Each structure stands twice: as structure tokens, then as C-alpha cells.
Simulated assay, not measured.
Amino acid sequence: MVYISKILLFPIKKQRKYLQSGFIDTLRLFVKAGSGGNGLPKFGGVGGQGGNVYLVGNENLTLENVRSAHKTKKIAAKHGRNSTHNFILGVPGENVKIEVPTGISILTDDGAKLGEINKEGEEIIVAKGGQGGHSKNDYIGRIGESHSIKLDLKLISDIGLVGFPNAGKSTVLKAVSQANPKIASYPFTTIRPNVGIISYKDLRQISMADLPGLIEGAHINKGMGHKFLKHVERTKMILLVVDVNGFQLSPQHPFRNCFDTIILLNKELEMYNPDLLNKPTMIVINKMDVEGANEKYLEVKKKINHLSDYFGEYPIEIRPEIPLKFQQILAISAQTNKEDIEVLKNKLRTLLDVCYQDNKVDEFKTLKDTIELQKEKGPRLV
């Protein structure tokens, strides 16, 4: 009895808050449209159309909000009313509109894509109501569509921060924007995307997303894997952040120097989606305030614009086939040097403007082939 009492009274360890309210970027719903009402053969009456199920974009929502609003995850529209001698035209069933965040793709269970919602107020029908009964269908109303759908969120931001854990991505985001991500000196501090807004004196704003750090094998869904990489697809520009001192995930993993991490990040992006390598890309070599950083940076700087020349030094499993092309290289100390941050903010703005002028991204190949960026003073700028 004493033993049982101890078990019953033993305190149950609560799940940590960040796991209880973790970031949701996929959500499954069951949607059912209304069936059409029956017609009335005697008077040629037409049954009411079944209600449709719509998704409507709302920039202020998250998938957590959608899940809370639809706890049963089953949404049904109303059926159309039958035709009667008093109402020859049956009353249509009421439509249902589900507000969802912008930046989602809608998929069926078999992977078919129903569409996307990228703008405020944008609508898409995900289940169509059945046709009302009339002379051509024997006055029998048709059943409305019903199926499961998957809402797949991909963050939309101007800039996506890419790097290994503890490279300083969160520090960069906090320094240049209004975001306040958790920062610590150990890997995987960021467990959910953080989005910050970079504001300028002329009221221009640029959005930047800090995403969970990659590890080797992310393209085959190791670590955060696809949960991270899919968010990079909708960014306009990639900001690669690497630690000048290199990175080691744990004592059981090999140490990777600064240049190794660039090669590995190149490989992970290529293996997940080679189109990511065509995005305008800027690289930041971070933590330049540590002893010996300048020597390490100068060594990496010589190689960084000729990545493919060094591919042969790496085993085939981590060797990219297509090199990343960096439109800008910048060495900074995000934590200690405010001047570096101001230079970074200006560089990001100018690069975005150059790349997306008139929305002709495809015409932008390399910075040297098109236009020189505004030159800021600083001994560590390339």
C-alpha cells in the first residue's frame, strides 16, 4: 500500500512550455462540403446547391490559431434545401470560410496540390458543394466533396538566415531587428522560427527569419531537416551565417572549420532543392571579436569565391556539385560591434533592391556583372 501511494503521489513532470506550445507548420483538417438538395419533379423545382468550404488568408493568424479554433479538425458546410411547392428553388447551403495564415500550400492525402494562399483575403475552395437536383440529374441532389487536407506553412520573409547551430544567427537577428530570440552559447537554442523586422530611418522595412540550425544530413530529414529547409524556399534572399572558429555538434561528431561549414551548407541546400542555389546569397563570417579571427578569415576569404576549386578535397558524401555564388561577403562581430551591424543592414537593403528591381530576379546573375553595391568604409569588407 505504501509503495502504491508513493507512485500515486509521485509528481508528474510537466512538459516544458516551449514543447507544449511548439511551432506548428503543418496541420491536417477534414473538410466536408454540403450536399445538394433534391428537386421537385412535379413542378420542375431545383434543389439548393450545397455549401462550399473555403480557406481565406489572414496575415495575423498562425496554424496554432487555426488548430485552436477548430479543435475537432472537422469542418462541414451546410446542405442545400430541397425544392418544395412553396420554394421551387431550394435555398443554397451556407458556405464555410476558414481563416488561415498566409504562406500556406494546401495538399490532399495523396500529395496533390490544391493551391496556395499567399495574400491577405485570398480565397480558395477546398471542398465544393454538391449540385442541387434538377431535370438533368433526375432531381436527386449530388453529394458534396469531402476529404482530408494538409495545410503546409512556409514562412514568407525577405531574408532567410541559414547556418549551423550556434553560428550566431539569433544574435544577428536581434542586432538588426526588433525580434527578441532566445540566445545562449550552446547549439539548438532556436527551436522554432523567429521573424524580425529590420527598420530604416526612411520607414523602409525588411523581414528576416531566423530558422533552426542545420546539421549534416538535414536534406534527408536529420535534426530539423525538412521542417527547416522548406521555409528557405519562400525567402527572397539567403543570408548564410558561419562561425569563423568552425563548429562541432558534439564530441562524437567531427570538428568542421569555417570553410568546411560553408561546403556542408552548400551541400545541404543543394540536396534538398538545387533551386535554392539560384537565390541571391550573402555570407556573414561571424564572431570576428575572438583572438586569431582575422587570420582565419583571411584564409577563408581566399577560397570563398572559388568553392568548386576545393570540392575535390572532400569525400563524395559531403561534396556539392553546384557551388553557391555569394553576391556579398562580410566579416562581423554581431554581438560586440554596432558599426558592423549598421553596415550589414545597409548591405542587405542594397542587395535586395538590386536583386529584385522590377522583379527581374532571373536577370541578376552576379553582383559584378550588374551593378556595384554602395561602398561602406571598413577594413573587413569585400
Rank of each mutant, 00 (worst) to 15 (best):
G213Q: 01
K78G: 03
L373A: 06
T190N: 01
Y3Q: 10
N52M: 09
V53Q: 01
T84V: 02
K377I: 13
K377R: 14
V56P: 02
T189S: 14
L229T: 12
F259T: 12
G37W: 07
T189E: 10
G80K: 02
K302E: 15
L239Q: 10
M208W: 03
T261I: 10
G111L: 06
M237C: 13
G22V: 13
K182M: 12
V91A: 02
K302G: 06
N346V: 02
D152M: 01
K78A: 14
F364K: 05
N221Q: 11
K154F: 05
P315H: 12
V284Q: 05
P187C: 06
A331Y: 09
E116D: 13
E339G: 07
E145T: 08
F23T: 07
S185A: 14
I106L: 10
I332S: 02
V53R: 11
L277W: 06
P315I: 15
V172D: 01
K302M: 11
S185Y: 03
S333Y: 05
I322L: 01
K365I: 15
G130T: 09
G121P: 09
I124M: 00
R256P: 00
L351E: 00
G225D: 10
M271V: 02
S148A: 14
K360P: 03
A218F: 00
L276I: 13
F10K: 12
R349Q: 13
L27P: 08
S177A: 02
V53Y: 08
P274A: 08
L269P: 06
K174R: 14
R234Q: 04
V354H: 14
D289F: 08
D260W: 00
I285W: 00
D260E: 08
I140D: 00
S177L: 04
Y18N: 14
A167T: 01
K73F: 12
L367W: 07
V162R: 04
E123D: 03
R28Q: 14
D25Q: 13
I104Q: 05
G144N: 00
L348M: 15
G37T: 08
Y139C: 01
L8F: 13
F255Y: 15
K97H: 09
V100F: 01
N286T: 06
